[in-house]
Design a protein around this nucleic acid. Structure first.
Length: 427
DNA sequence: TCTGGGGTCCTAGGACCC
DNA sequence: TCTGGGGTCCTAGGACCC
């Protein structure tokens, strides 16, 4: 039953503009008006572009080698991705937003939903959030405000597209006619949750804009697209279906994988890569207080090299008992790698996936669990403590260190200004 | 020469159970 | 000849997100 007394929920979506590029600019005032791009791991593709770089027409996802000419011609400044820096900047940004709102849900590294339900003067609050994030983290943001998450996302999109909004678009305190006019301008494919496939499908039904989707017949939408799209329709109309969740649930799967800096044939290099990924994935298990029972190991050739014979090896196995012990998982992973490794291929990527994840820090007492002894637990705790205190990778497995051929190349890496004393900015 | 990484949710279909 | 009706769990695959 709809309760008239109940206050309608209000969400804000705060999103960092060109987040990675803005993080790089934050410590380089000399780059303020320069075009900056940030590359994916291995300096492969463009994953972030400053406003200036967007204006130059650098597309998202472009491989570096395809835009070398533009880089030289326009003097675009290029950075390798520095996730250590971005993660820390993200934490600062979220802290600033949390200091002004009762509850936030961190949705990704560069955006969060905030609960504005019942708060007065939302427009001014949006402006205040932008100002504080800039003050604390030097990150420019846009704020979208709506009665649902989808509306807040959409408002954010509008604020980003048009400077006239001064970074804050508030769909809640706005005349219906104005809101409808805005929705009529937005292509359905720009709505959160409507991707390429769905937007093509919607188009065949004559639904091209956010307004048309909002007003589409719910029954028809439900029948043809399922509950997901029906929910988006309702959210567009301002009926909140997706709640704010400010407690983070543990992951259901943990994946660690990397492309190699060069092609690899040597099994030792694959072992080193897989071992490194096992360490990092299992450390996440312990960090979030969970155990896993299943591990998958996979290795891939380079699918872009059509002249090479392609191979994808993948195999899973389960431990007898759920665990968060690095050594156990590593042993099993090495066996799986033995099974899938085929000599003669040119490998480009390796990874591991943990699944069957459940809550519980310590194992239940089990007569047959030989490995998860209190001593082994202590060892893992010590490992985590050392790596936290002295930096990731301070203590590694020997299998992870036997070969370096697979390491990423990150030629344009910036300093970790905020997390390493040796990288502190000097003026 | 050179092309990222890590997630979530939903659905359909099969196995199995009572 | 005639052969129910639910339910759960698991998995693979699709679609989407940043």
């Amino acid at each position: 039953m709809l309760n008239d007394k109940k206050i309608a929920p209000v969400f804000a979506l705060v999103d960092g503009n060109s987040f990675y590029a803005s993080c790089e600019k934050a410590f380089r005032p000399d780059l303020r008006d320069r075009a900056v791009v940030v590359l994916s791991n291995n300096d492969g593709c463009v994953v972030a572009r400053s406003a200036e770089a967007k204006l130059l027409g650098i597309p998202m996802g472009a491989p570096l080698f395809q835009i070398q000419k533009d880089i030289r011609q326009h003097g675009i400044v290029v950075f390798s991705s520095n996730y250590e820096l971005y993660a820390d900047m993200s934490a600062r940004m979220m802290a600033a937003i949390a200091s002004l709102t009762p509850r936030i849900e961190v949705y990704s590294i560069d955006e969060c939903f905030a609960d504005l339900t019942g708060m007065a003067d939302r427009q001014a609050l949006g402006t205040l959030i932008r100002r504080r994030v800039h003050q604390w983290a030097r990150i420019p943001t846009c704020v979208g405000i709506g009665h649902s998450k989808v509306q807040a996302k959409l408002a954010n999109h509008i604020a980003k597209k048009n400077k006239d909004w001064n970074g804050v678009c508030n769909l809640v305190d706005m005349p219906d006619a104005q809101r409808d006019a805005l929705l009529a301008e937005i292509p359905a494919g720009s709505i959160w949750g409507i991707g390429r496939k769905l937007s093509a499908h919607l188009q065949t039904m004559g639904i091209r804009t956010a307004l048309q989707l909002r007003d589409a017949d719910k029954g028809t939408i439900r029948k043809r697209f399922g509950v997901v799209v029906e929910r988006i329709c309702r959210e567009l109309a301002g009926h909140s279906c997706l709640a704010l969740s400010d407690v983070s649930e543990p992951n259901q799967q943990i994946i660690r994988s990397r492309s190699f800096g060069q092609l690899v044939t040597d099994k030792m290099a694959l072992q080193a890569a897989v071992s490194t990924h096992v360490c990092s994935a299992v450390a996440v298990l312990r960090e979030q207080g969970t155990l896993a029972s299943v591990i998958n190991v996979f290795i891939d050739t380079n699918r872009f090299r059509e002249q090479d014979v392609q191979y994808h090896g993948s195999k899973s196995a389960a431990l007898a008992h759920p665990s968060s012990d690095t050594l156990q998982f590593n042993q099993l992973a090495m066996q799986l790698l033995d099974d899938i490794y085929q000599p003669g291929y040119l490998y480009k990527k390796a990874g591991v996936m943990l699944a069957g994840i459940e809550t519980g820090t310590r194992l239940q007492a089990d007569l047959f669990a030989q490995h998860d002894t209190p001593e082994r637990d202590k060892l893992m705790q010590t490992l985590d403590a050392l790596n936290t205190r002295y930096g990731r990778g301070t203590v590694q497995l020997a299998t992870a260190m036997q070969n370096e051929d697979w390491r990423m190349c990150r030629e344009k890496l910036s300093p970790c200004y905020t997390t390493r004393t040796e990288d502190l900015l000097t003026i």
